[in-house]
Deep mutational scan, measured.
Amino acid sequence: MDVFMKGLSKAKEGVVAAAEKTKQGVAEAAGKTKEGVLYVGSKTKEGVVHGVATVAEKTKEQVTNVGGAVVTGVTAVAQKTVEGAGSIAAATGFVKKDQLGKNEEGAPQEGILEDMPVDPDNEAYEMPSEEGYQDYEPEA
């Protein structure tokens, strides 16, 4: 019985440690998101679009440190934060509304985080759909 109880105690310690790591990862992701939003706020009209992409990228980098179902929630929060940063930029006159959601080359930025393969159960990952990809044929 002692062996059984000791095993359960060790398992509990492992769960607590994993929860603490997840909590730490979420806190880091939130900190990076805040950094990115402050970065966007300090940019001029020309830099705002690039700044919004930076927020998304920093958040995406930190999301990889967070495991399990938390990833889905962090990704949703990050996307809403990026959308909010863009709205703030438009409201303050840093950028025109028609410039939001495009990178410096004018290509749409939507789907940055949505296409990231995420499995809350950590069982399997699927690649994003290939609808947006084109076949590449090298020139002879």
Rank of each mutant, 00 (worst) to 15 (best):
E110T: 08
V15I: 12
P117H: 04
T75V: 14
E57Q: 14
P117I: 10
G68Q: 03
I112M: 10
I112P: 05
V3C: 09
P138C: 03
K97P: 12
E57Y: 02
V26C: 05
E130R: 01
T59H: 01
A19D: 00
E20H: 15
K97D: 14
K12D: 00
A91I: 14
A19V: 08
E131L: 05
K80P: 02
H50C: 11
F4H: 00
I112H: 14
V55P: 01
E123I: 12
A89M: 15
E131Y: 12
N103R: 11
E35R: 09
G47W: 06
T59P: 01
T59R: 01
A69L: 01
K6L: 05
V55R: 02
A140D: 11
V16F: 15
A90D: 02
T72M: 13
P120D: 13
P120E: 08
G106C: 10
E83S: 08
E137W: 06
I112W: 15
V15P: 00
A56N: 06
E137R: 10
T59E: 01
V66I: 15
E139M: 13
S87C: 05
K43H: 04
A78C: 07
N65W: 12
T64R: 12
Q109R: 02
Q109G: 02
K60Y: 07
V77D: 02
N122M: 04
K23D: 00
V37A: 12
P117S: 09
K10E: 02
E130F: 07
V16M: 12
G31T: 09
A91Q: 08
K58Q: 05
D119S: 03
T75F: 11
P120C: 06
A124T: 14
P138H: 05
T92N: 03
K97Y: 10
G51A: 04
A11T: 07
A17I: 12
K32P: 01
V74F: 08
F4W: 07
D119I: 03
L113I: 14
G132H: 09
A27E: 01
N103I: 04
G7I: 08
Q79T: 11
I88Y: 08
V63K: 00
G86C: 13
D121E: 05
P138G: 12
G84A: 02
A89D: 04
V52M: 01
V71A: 08
A27H: 12
N65C: 10
Y125M: 02
Y125W: 09
D121A: 08
K23P: 01
E130H: 14
K32T: 04
T75G: 10
E130Q: 12
P138W: 14
D135G: 06
K6Y: 07
D98T: 06
V63L: 13
N65S: 01
T44Q: 00
V40W: 00
D115C: 11
A107T: 11
E137T: 06
H50G: 09
E28S: 04
K32E: 00
T59S: 07
K58P: 00
G36R: 15
Y39F: 13
P120V: 05
V55G: 02
P117L: 07
G86R: 14
D98C: 13
D121Y: 15
G86W: 05
G7K: 01
P138M: 12
K60V: 09
T75D: 05
D98Q: 09
M5W: 02
G86S: 11
L8C: 01
A29F: 01
Q99A: 12
L113W: 03
A19F: 15
E13R: 01
A19P: 00
E126D: 13
G106K: 08
L38A: 09
E35A: 07
T44V: 05
K43E: 00
G51Q: 02
Q24C: 15
V16C: 07
T64Q: 04
